[in-house]
Design a protein around this nucleic acid. Structure first.
Length: 606
DNA sequence: GCCGTTTTCGGCCCGACTGTTTTCAGTCG
C-alpha cells in the first residue's frame, strides 16, 4: 500500500489513538519480556503524554522536531510515530508482538496481577490468555508459583469476577453522586474532622477508574470501620490502619439508567493526620504525572515530597514523617505549592500539561460565572418542560438570558420542528416575553441539524430570522474523519450559526462519535467567530477537555450549555464547568458568562 | 528511552498494603 493512500486513510484522531495504544503495548510487552524498566516507563510516559496532547498529530508528523517538543517524546519515539504514520505499523511493535501472546494483555488487566506475576505464569505454566489463567486456577497448578498461596488465588478469582461487571471506567456523572454520599457518610462519624473526595474525580475527568476518599480523624481505626460498613458496600478489598478499599454497588440510584445495573465501583479510603491534610489531598488528587513533576521539583530544591508533607532532604532512608521531623509545608495545598515557589494550581489542570509554568493561579470559569443557558428544549420537541417552566427555571438560577432551541425537522424522532411550526413558536415566545418581562431575556433559537454533507436543516432566511442558531450533528456519526471535518467546517462557516453544538456527537463509553481534524475545525471556528460548545451532559462532555484546551489556545470562543431537556439537566452544569476548567477556559472565553449586552450584541452580529 | 537553571552521562518519585514471608517482593495509586 502506498504512503499517499495510507495518508488519506489516517486522519483526525486515528493516528494519535493508534500511537497511544501501540506505545502502551510496546511498554507492556517490554515489561513482560523483562526488559529495562526505565525503557518500559519511558514508553508508558510517552503514551500518556500523547494521550493528553490536544493538537493534531497529523500536522506535526512532517516535522519530527515538533513531535519532540511534546514532553516525554524523544528521537526514538518520534521516529516510531512517523513510521506509524507512513507505513501504518511500528516494526518494533510487530517484532515484540511475535514474541508475546496478545491474550497476556487481558491477563495483565486483571486487578492485582502485575507484570512480574503474569510473566511467571507465562514462563512457568504457559499462560497466554484469561482462559489459561482460569485453567491454572481450576487445576491448582497456579499454587506452584513462587509466593502464590490460596489467599492470593482467591483474590485473583474475585478480580476475574469483578472484571465481568466493571471493566470500563465510570462516567463522572455516575461516580460523583456516590463520592458525595460517601463523604457525607464519613463526615457523620464523630472522630472524622475533615473529609473530601480526591483523585481523578476531583480533577473533573470525564470518566473515573475508582473513587478516592480522604479523611482526617482522631480515631483512624474507627473511621476505617465506619467506612467499610457504609451503605452499598458489597465487598471489602483491603482493611489497613490508614487505608481501606471497598466495592460499592452502583445500581442503587441509577433511575433511568437501568442498563448500569449490577455494576460496582471501587472506593478507596485514606486516613491521614490533620496536620498532613494539604499534602495528602494534593498527593491523592494527582495526577500521578503531576505528582512526579512536583517531587522532581522538590528534589531540585533539596526537599522531598510525600503524602505527609514537604521535608528537607537528608540521607536517612527512613521516611521523614516516621522520624518525627517537622515538615516545611503540609497543612494546605496552597502552603505546599508556595513552598515550591508555585502558585496554587486548581485540581482540574494538574495533568502535567505545562501547568507548573502557569506563573500565577489561572482564573478559570466557575458555575457562578454562568449567566445564560443557550441550548434548551421544551415540550415543543423532545423536552419535558413547558416554555414557561423552562424560563422560570432559568430565572431561578439567576440567569439573564435563556435561549429556546428546540430540534429542527430532521430530528424527527425528537419531534423536530419544520419551518411552519418554528414560525408558529414565535407567538409562544412573544407571550412568554410579556409574562416574564423585565426578569429575563428569552431568545428564540433552534438546534438545527447538521446534515451528513454539512448542509443545515433550514435555509439562510430562516436561520437569519432566529435569535440564535445552535448547529449540531445528530445522524451519520460514524462517517470517516475527512467527511466529518468538511461537514463541521461547513457548518461553523455558515454566518448564521452561532454555536456548534456537541461537535463530535460522542457518548462516553457508548459511541465514539465524529473524529474531525480538530485543529482545522478550531481554526475555522476562530475565523468565523463561531462558538464551540461544551455540552455539559455527563454522557457527552463534548467537546472533550483536550480539545477545549486546543480551542482556547487557538483563541476560540466557548459555549457551556446544559442542553436542557428536563429540570434536573440544569444541574449538569458542574460537569461542563469541570471539562471547561480542564481546558483552561477563563470567563472571558465563554459566552455564557458575558454580561447581557455583550452577549446579545455578539448574537446579533450578522 | 528521556532528559538537563549543578548534568549530553547517569540518573530516573514515594509509601501503604497484602500475602508470603522470618525480611520482602509485587502491586497499586
Amino acid at each position: 500500500m502506498s504512503g499517499a493512500l495510507r495518508l488519506d486513510l489516517r486522519s483526525g484522531m486515528a493516528l494519535k489513538d493508534d500511537a497511544v495504544r501501540l506505545l502502551e503495548e510496546i511498554a507492556a510487552m517490554l515489561e513482560l519480556l523483562g526488559e529495562d524498566k526505565f525503557r518500559v516507563n519511558a514508553h508508558h510516559r510517552a503514551a500518556r503524554s500523547l494521550e493528553g496532547f490536544g493538537g493534531d498529530l497529523e500536522s506535526l508528523v512532517d516535522d519530527p522536531a515538533k513531535l519532540k517538543q511534546i514532553p516525554g517524546i524523544g528521537q526514538k519515539v518520534a521516529d516510531k510515530i512517523v513510521e506509524l504514520h507512513t507505513t501504518g505499523r511500528i516494526r518494533e511493535h510487530d517484532e515484540l508482538a511475535a514474541r508475546v501472546p496478545r491474550g497476556l494483555f487481558d491477563v495483565l488487566a486483571v486487578p492485582g496481577l502485575g507484570p512480574k506475576t503474569v510473566k511467571a505464569m507465562w514462563d512457568r505454566l504457559g499462560v497466554e490468555s484469561i482462559d489459561d489463567l482460569k485453567r491454572i486456577i481450576d487445576d491448582g497448578s497456579i499454587l506452584t508459583l513462587e509466593r502464590m498461596g490460596q489467599r492470593s488465588v482467591d483474590k485473583i478469582a474475585a478480580s476475574l469476577e469483578f472484571l465481568q461487571t466493571s471493566a470500563e471506567r465510570l462516567p463522572l456523572g455516575l461516580a460523583l453522586p456516590v463520592a458525595e454520599r460517601m463523604v457525607e457518610h464519613m463526615r457523620a462519624h464523630k472522630s472524622v474532622t475533615r473529609a473530601a473526595y480526591a483523585g481523578s474525580l476531583r480533577r473533573g475527568r470525564d470518566t473515573i477508574g475508582d473513587i478516592d476518599i480522604l479523611v482526617s480523624a482522631t480515631d483512624a481505626a474507627a473511621a476505617g470501620e465506619h467506612f467499610r460498613s457504609a451503605p452499598g458496600v458489597v465487598a471489602v478489598l483491603a482493611a489497613g490502619e490508614s487505608k481501606s478499599s471497598v466495592r460499592v454497588a452502583l445500581d442503587a440510584d441509577l433511575g433511568r439508567w437501568g442498563a448500569e445495573e449490577g455494576r460496582a465501583v471501587q472506593v478507596d479510603l485514606r486516613v491521614v493526620p490533620e496536620e498532613s491534610w494539604g499534602a495528602a489531598l494534593m498527593y491523592f488528587t494527582g495526577s500521578k504525572e503531576h505528582n512526579v513533576r512536583m517531587r522532581e521539583r522538590a528534589l531540585k530544591k533539596a526537599m522531598t515530597l510525600n503524602e505527609y508533607g514537604l521535608f528537607a532532604q537528608d540521607t536517612d532512608p527512613e521516611p521523614p514523617h516516621k522520624r518525627g521531623i517537622a515538615p516545611i509545608a503540609s497543612r494546605s495545598e496552597e502552603e505546599v505549592y508556595a513552598a515550591l515557589d508555585l502558585p496554587f494550581l486548581p485540581p482540574e489542570i494538574r495533568e502535567d500539561r505545562d501547568e507548573l509554568n502557569a506563573g500565577e493561579t489561572p482564573r478559570l470559569v466557575e458555575c457562578a460565572d454562568i449567566k445564560a443557558e443557550l441550548h434548551a428544549h421544551t415540550t415543543e420537541s423532545d423536552g419535558r418542560l413547558s416554555l414557561d417552566e423552562l424560563v422560570q427555571a432559568a430565572i431561578d438560577r439567576g440567569f439573564h438570558t435563556i435561549a429556546v432551541t428546540d430540534h429542527s425537522r430532521s430530528s424527527a424522532q425528537a419531534g423536530g420542528l419544520d419551518v411552519d411550526r418554528l414560525r408558529a413558536q414565535r407567538e409562544q415566545i412573544e407571550r412568554a416575553r410579556e409574562t416574564f418581562q423585565g426578569r429575563i431575556t428569552i431568545l428564540h433559537g433552534c438546534e438545527v441539524d447538521i446534515l451528513a454533507d454539512g448542509a443545515l436543516d433550514f435555509d439562510d432566511d430562516t436561520l437569519a430570522w432566529l435569535d440564535l442558531v445552535v448547529a449540531s450533528p445528530h445522524a451519520a456519526l460514524s462517517q470517516d474523519a475527512k467527511a466529518a471535518t468538511a461537514r463541521l467546517i461547513k457548518a461553523v462557516s455558515n454566518p448564521f450559526v452561532h454555536i456548534l453544538g456537541h461537535p463530535t456527537g460522542r457518548l462516553i463509553g457508548r459511541r465514539k462519535g465524529l473524529e474531525p481534524a480538530m485543529d482545522e475545525l478550531i481554526a475555522a471556528a476562530v475565523e468565523h467567530d463561531t462558538a464551540l460548545e461544551i455540552n455539559a451532559h455527563w454522557l457527552r462532555l463534548d467537546l472533550r477537555d483536550t480539545h477545549v484546551r486546543a480551542a482556547v489556545d487557538a483563541g476560540a470562543t466557548i459555549a457551556i450549555d446544559c442542553d436542557v431537556h428536563a429540570l434536573a439537566d440544569f444541574d449538569n452544569l458542574r460537569y461542563g464547568i469541570s471539562t471547561a476548567r480542564r481546558g483552561w477556559v477563563k470567563p472571558e472565553h465563554c459566552i455564557n458568562t458575558w454580561p447581557a449586552h455583550k452577549l446579545h450584541t455578539w448574537l446579533a452580529r450578522t
